[in-house]
Simulated scan of single mutants.
Amino acid sequence: MGTLILSGGGSAKQNKEAHKTFAERLDKDKPLLYIPVAGDSVRRPHEGSFHYIKKCLNPYGVTKFEMWTDLNDHSVKEIQTFAGIYISGGCSLKLRRLVGESGFARVLSEFYKRGGIIFGQSAGAILLGNNRAGIHEGLNLVENHRIWCHYKSEMEGERSFLSDKESSRILAMEDGGSVLVTNDRLIRISGNSYTFQEGRKTSIE
């Protein structure tokens, strides 16, 4: 299996340690694949997001990038040429739909199973959990956890959160909260993140 780095969202400054941890694990001789399709390309063009992520990762020696905005007709062989994959934030429902309908879910899962490194930021992190949106499910790469991003403690009283808490494990990350997922372990990188299981809240250390 591969490695996941998950971010609950937040600013470049809040995600500095997560980006550093990601970059340290990449083969710098290969390009990084950037996928911004969860974002609203009208409000923020994908090229602007691409520039932003380059600016975040350049200080850690990541200089080769490629961006995909169309997830159709890509193969496992093609994706294996990348050092890692960065999936940025936006609308998680849209992202799961695009990944599911294009068949890219299978390609991503196989990349991970073959040892690939994936960074999921906000909606990108949610995609990697077992969250469900209509007929489109997350990839379930995080030990059967549903992923909650932009978490705040007051969310625990919301009906949707309570419903999830009763039915499955949850990984909840605040803005600036990030975790490393490796060998079925959740390891804190920065900020505050928590797991919920059978109603019990545990801080990730």
Rank of each mutant, 00 (worst) to 15 (best):
K20S: 05
E198K: 12
K16L: 09
R25V: 04
Q80K: 13
Y60T: 01
Q121C: 11
S167F: 09
K201D: 05
I5P: 09
K94L: 07
S153Q: 13
S41P: 11
S88N: 08
L95V: 04
G48I: 10
I35E: 07
S203V: 10
D29K: 14
T202W: 00
S102M: 00
G124Q: 07
V62K: 11
N144D: 15
S163G: 11
A12N: 11
L71S: 09
N140D: 14
K30V: 01
I189S: 00
M67F: 12
L6P: 11
A133T: 03
C91R: 13
D29R: 10
L32C: 02
H150F: 01
M67Y: 10
G157Y: 13
T3G: 06
I189D: 01
R159I: 12
D27G: 07
G48K: 15
G129Y: 04
K94Q: 09
L95R: 03
Q80N: 13
R43G: 15
H51K: 12
G116R: 06
S75T: 15
G10K: 06
H150K: 03
G115L: 04
A12D: 14
G129V: 01
P59T: 01
I147R: 00
N131V: 04
E158A: 09
V142F: 11
G100F: 10
A125F: 07
G89M: 01
E78H: 12
G199V: 04
E110C: 07
D175M: 02
M1Q: 11
R114I: 00
G9T: 04
K165P: 05
V181Q: 05
V62T: 08
K55I: 00
C56P: 00
R43A: 13
K55V: 01
E101A: 03
R114C: 05
R114H: 13
M1F: 13
G138E: 08
S41I: 04
F82V: 02
R159F: 13
D70E: 15
L93N: 09
L108A: 03
L186R: 05
L93T: 09
E174R: 09
L186Y: 12
S190G: 04
K77Y: 10
F161E: 02
S102G: 03
R159H: 14
H51D: 15
I126K: 00
I85D: 05
L180W: 08
E158N: 08
P31S: 06
I79M: 08
F119E: 01
I87E: 06
W148V: 02
S193I: 00
R114F: 08
L162P: 00
C91N: 15
A105R: 07
N140I: 04
F22S: 00
S7K: 01
A105Q: 08
I87N: 02
W68L: 11
G9W: 02
L98G: 03
